[in-house]
Design a protein around this nucleic acid. Sequence first.
DNA 1: ATGTCC
Length: 467
Amino acid sequence: MNGKHIQKLGFEKRAIKLALDAANLREDTGASRQEILDELQAVQNNPTGYLAGGVYAELAAELHEQDQKVVSRQSAALRATPLPYRVWGEDLIDPGAHDQMDVAMRLPVSRAGALMPDAHVGYGLPIGGVLATENAVIPYGVGVDIGCSMMLSVLPMAPGALGTDEARSLLIKHTRFGAGVAFEKRDRLDHEVLHDPAWKEQPLLRHLHPKAAEQIGTSGSGNHFVEFGTLTLKAPDLDLEPGEYLAVLSHSGSRGFGAQVAGHFTTLAQKLHPNLDRAAQKLAWLPLDTHEGEAYWQAMNLAGRYALANHEQIHGRLARALGLKPAAQVSNSHNLAWKQQHGGRELIVHRKGATPAEAGRLGLIPGSMADPGFVVRGRGVEAALSSASHGAGRQLGRKAAINSLAKKDVQAYLEGRGITLIGGGIDEAPQAYKRIEEVIARQSDLVDVVAEFQPRVVRMDTGSEDI
DNA sequence: ATGTCC
């Protein structure tokens, strides 16, 4: 064992000496060269795991310090002025969302961005915000509900063939809503995502696996929904003939698992940037070439796959109960970060409430519990970083909706559109959202509308104020 | 968004 072996593993400066010292101690106790090299690699991959004690503790401390220096070098001050970014639907966007996007575009790691017409204020990056960074991922640029996504199943059945009462009982029997809810053990379905090797590669993920296993196929709360409705296709597409179809549309995320991943890494990112300007505190990032950044990337992508698996379970249950196999299916994540080529380099594109809209890619943009949703096809517009809105976007905050909307007006709106609602709350009333038709119109250069979905029987969590 | 502090 000599310095060359150590340097080959990528150790630098004082870490080389410390690694060599530790290697010699291990050799004295009879460890083989390969064992020692594997151990050194493990320490390098996760220095914090070896700080507590043992032969590698000093090396781990030095590696940890080197990591911190990398991080603090990147904690430069904010730019004096935001980088320019384009806005779609300026007239529909409140100033608060603009201000948040301005701060994001002042981060030293930011390279490009865009604001979608459904934009409104969120934590850190606004909802409807798209942000491209270089070698950095921002947990709050993805959002608390990592992998929050949409799925549509078009069923080979005429919309009228499923009665409202039957649709209602299917939703009650096969979906679960509410914070903290999980499936009873006997009702659980297995899914390959629960056997993903990533669960065993981080203590945090290992810890969250049981929660993920019991919550898979559930829908949570807030704006999440599962609904039956009518899909209208005017021209041949989605491998389907034009016509009207019964369809299931769902909005769901990564449940408690994703929320805890988001919380863990947001806290970590903020700790790594103690000197970040206060205005940008919630936009603290993790450099992708550090262990912390890699760990978040792995956990985020697992949460993304898990959220889509959630939808698969929901749709699978409903289709099986009807004895049908979906004739077409569309899905997309709208809270996630992707590696994407932009301006000749690889950037990290965060979409926090934004639909991927690369040229030709299908996506889903829902309206509200009573308004139509749209199947869209992306046009790959560079200035929008190939994105579109993820929905209509709120025009009233939850409190404002509860305080200002009258129950009878919301009921009238639902009755006028023939909506049967299970659960739901005033804070999710259609009147709390921007008009989806306007939001779609403002982004006609970003996506083409492929089909329209009108909800009919809708299930949501019980809100704090009933409708 | 989430059982609202692992």
